[in-house]
Design a protein around this nucleic acid. Structure first.
Length: 432
DNA sequence: TCTGGGGTCCTAGGACCC
DNA sequence: TCTGGGGTCCTAGGACCC
């Protein structure tokens, strides 16, 4: 038995908490480089702004709609997220933080009226954080997700589901027939695990709703599609196949990739960017106390610039031994870049991925002939501590590249709001 | 002019081995 | 003329998620 709690329009809602004047207005939060709309208020959705729509297109198509756009402010969203998660944890004995705005809660052994508890929690999150959330309960994670979808839809689009399900929906409390009716009112594309491609294929096969999918024969589904889809069918039938992951396993790969604010043509600038990405990825790696075995570097032009010649390549190089040392990782990433870089292109994006991750404790012993290695780990720890305390980039390795000119490739964020909750100088001031 | 970033899992197919 | 069968491992790519 599971609950899924999920914030409505999370990024936009976080911004509204600190700028109430945005309530009731069409608002979008943009991806890095102020590229695409990645969070939309209900008013923006009602105007037809699609998820992932490029901002320049929105402006062109709806110049007079009064849409407010904001650059993504991840420190703010991350902080609001952990506050919300802490409150959600009160619902049941165990939780899984599934994403920045979604938390699964195990309801095992929880007695009483779940929907009533859900409404209380919902009110509290709204009052304390200003965040509207939807809560769904179901016998499996897939059904809890579906219930959550029902809760939000019944709230936002009256008539899509019975009004009793608005904001909080408990599928567990429904009769067999009532649950079937809810599934039958749900297009199969809205089911967790059924994306665009699969949706099209299932519709081709004559299916329309979540109920149709739930009634398929799992063995046939496995033969015709895959075990993944088979699991979804079982889960829709109420048979749990996906467990709660209370303690998430360490990451198997770590990436840092960015689109550039301006096209980049020179190897020097690319090397600067790749060095920066590699050292940020190394920081993430040390945070999970891991070592990487391989480093992947990629660069690519923009597929949207049809007039440009296109080029896209990646290369994976092994590290001499698994490590989390920024210098070694940066050097390897740049070495990879040298191997794949070709002049004469407008590069739009680059990235570094760390692969073959292992726990740092599994480090293979090695005779330390150059007597340098011993202090490296300590140096990295010291660097991380300084950067944690005084802000990213306070100290860096010279080998990671020092910008000698303005970094034109860094991303655009012209519509950023303050770090209201994570920076002393940005704290809002209440006036009587 | 202007189109995100970071993950996971599964499968097919090639390389290689005996 | 006619050239096996079975297994593992790895990688690339696809599909999905938020």
């Amino acid at each position: 038995m599971f609950a899924l709690l999920d914030a409505n329009n999370f990024y936009v809602s976080c911004e509204r908490t600190f700028r109430p004047s945005l309530l009731g207005r069409p608002v979008v939060v943009l991806s890095n480089n102020d590229g695409c709309a990645v969070s939309r208020s209900n008013e923006a959705k009602a105007l037809g702004v699609a998820m992932g729509a490029p901002w320049f297109q929105i402006q062109r198509e709806l110049p007079d709609a009064g849409i407010v756009a904001l650059s993504a402010n991840y420190p703010l969203y991350g902080d609001m997220s952990s506050r919300m998660t802490a409150l959600a944890a009160g619902l049941g004995p165990e939780i899984e933080v599934y994403s920045i705005d979604e938390t699964f809660v195990s309801m095992a052994g929880v007695r009483g009226d779940w929907a009533a508890r859900g409404h209380v929690l919902r009110e509290r999150i709204l009052q304390w954080l200003g965040l509207p959330v939807g809560i769904g309960f179901g016998p499996t994670k897939t059904l809890a997700k579906l219930a959550n979808h029902v809760a939000k839809s019944a709230d936002r689009k009256p008539g899509s589901y019975p009004a009793q399900h608005a904001r909080v929906c408990n599928l567990v409390a429904l009769s067999e027939a009532e649950r079937a009716a809810v599934l039958d009112a749900t297009p199969l594309g809205d089911v967790w695990g059924i994306g665009r491609k699969l949706s099209a294929q299932l519709q081709e096969a004559g299916l329309r709703t979540a109920l149709d999918v739930a009634r398929m024969d799992p063995a046939m589904v496995r033969r015709r599609w895959s075990v993944v889809v088979e699991r979804t069918v079982h889960e829709l039938q109420g048979q749990p196949c996906i467990a709660l992951e209370n303690a998430p396993p360490p990451k198997r790969e770590i990436a840092c990739t960015r689109s550039f604010g301006h096209p980049v043509r020179t190897g020097r600038e690319l090397a600067e960017a790749v060095s920066d990405f590699a050292s940020r990825a190394s920081e993430k790696l040390r945070r999970q106390n891991g070592h990487a075995g391989q480093v992947l570097t990629f660069i690519q032009t923009s597929p949207f610039r049809r007039q440009d010649r296109q080029y896209s390549r990646s290369i994976t190089l092994p590290l001499r031994r698994p490590t989390a040392d920024s210098a070694a990782i940066v050097a390897t990433a740049v070495q990879g870049l040298r191997a794949i870089f070709k002049p004469g292109f407008n590069y739009a994006k680059a990235g570094v991925m760390l692969l073959d991750l292992v726990p740092a404790t599994l480090e293979q012993g090695e005779l330390d002939l150059d007597s340098e290695g011993a202090d490296r780990a300590g140096l990295m720890t010291a660097m991380d501590k300084l950067n944690d305390r005084y802000g990213r980039g306070t100290v860096a390795l010279a080998s990671a590249g020092i910008a000698t000119q303005k970094r034109r490739w860094t991303m655009k964020q012209s519509l950023r709001t303050p770090d209201y909750t994570t920076r002393w100088s940005d704290l809002p001031i209440a006036r009587a």
